[in-house]
């Protein structure tokens, strides 16, 4: 019994220590003074985590918008309320689905790649040799990736929403025959820019920070063997998915739960 309590305590201390280490790591890398070249390094990472994730995010957004419209229509038509389809599609996308699904896709597509890339750099001593040349790898390797992820995911989320709403339009208006005017009109009268679009963006920024943070920290902190890299990559996807879903509940409760 005492053994169990002891091991629980030890594990708690380990978790706390890892949290502290990663927070320190975040602070050191995020607030490194940007160099002249930093801008270009950031641009390269934007291309890697942003532009190259665009296709999968857009295609998923289109299909999710189409499915939402199809499902929503079959439910709403029973109440004779199919004209409210636009409102339903837009609100569920903007408030929930775009930030969450885009973040999950991002964790799988870009987060795992970041972990593996930094992990491989560590395994081949590139990080150590950079330190020996007198360049801080936190600033040179980690910071551009962190900032690129932080900017790219909200942009991807916007794209996801736009494409999703368009997908809903295709199915709802073009196929199922909802009036175009009421699709957009109902949407416009029920979507609040600050309350819905803005809060969705805040969610997305929080997810962006958390997912990229987990990804680069797992890469930087892993054991530099092939097994260590594969484990860390898995951890990135698992931890970031759990963090995104858990944080989503908390943020939703704060933003839309009416506790204010």
């Amino acid at each position: 019994m005492i053994q169990r309590v002891l091991s629980l305590g030890r594990r708690g201390c380990d978790v706390l220590e890892a949290l502290g280490r990663s927070t320190l790591f975040l602070a050191q890398s995020a607030f490194g003074v940007p160099s002249r070249e930093g801008w270009y390094l950031w641009l390269r990472q934007m291309h890697f985590v942003g532009v190259l994730s665009l296709a999968i995010v857009m295609v998923s957004g289109l299909f999710i918008g189409m499915v939402l419209a199809l499902q929503g229509y079959t439910i709403l038509v029973d109440f004779g309320a199919e004209q409210a389809l636009g409102q339903m599609v837009a609100l569920s996308l903007l408030r929930e689905l775009s930030p969450v699904v885009a973040a999950l896709l991002f964790a799988g597509r870009a987060g795992s790649a970041l972990t593996a890339e930094i992990g491989l750099m560590k395994a081949t001593e590139q990080l150590t040799s950079m330190e020996m040349i007198g360049v801080d790898p936190l600033r040179r390797i980690v910071a551009p990736r962190l900032w690129a992820g932080f900017v790219a995911l909200p942009l991807l989320t916007i794209g996801f929403s736009v494409v999703g709403i368009y997908g809903g339009y295709l199915v709802g208006v073009e196929w199922l025959g909802v009036f175009e005017g009421s699709y957009w009109g109902n949407m416009q009268s029920s979507v609040a820019f600050i309350g819905d679009v803005g809060n969705g963006m805040i969610k997305s920024m929080v997810f962006a920070l958390v997912v990229t943070w987990i990804a680069v920290f797992q890469g930087y902190d892993l054991i530099p063997t092939s097994e260590g890299i594969s484990r860390a990559t898995t951890r990135t996807v698992v931890y970031s998915s759990l963090a995104v879903l858990g944080l989503d509940f908390v943020l939703t409760a704060v933003m839309f739960g009416g506790f204010s």
Binding site: L120, M121, T124, E125, Q126, T128, S129, M130, E131, M132, I133, G134
Partner: peptide, 15 residues
Amino acid sequence: RRRMGMLFQSGALFS
């Protein structure tokens, strides 16, 4: 460290 150079076992070139 600018006054030191180090040659790593693996070379450690930036890939």
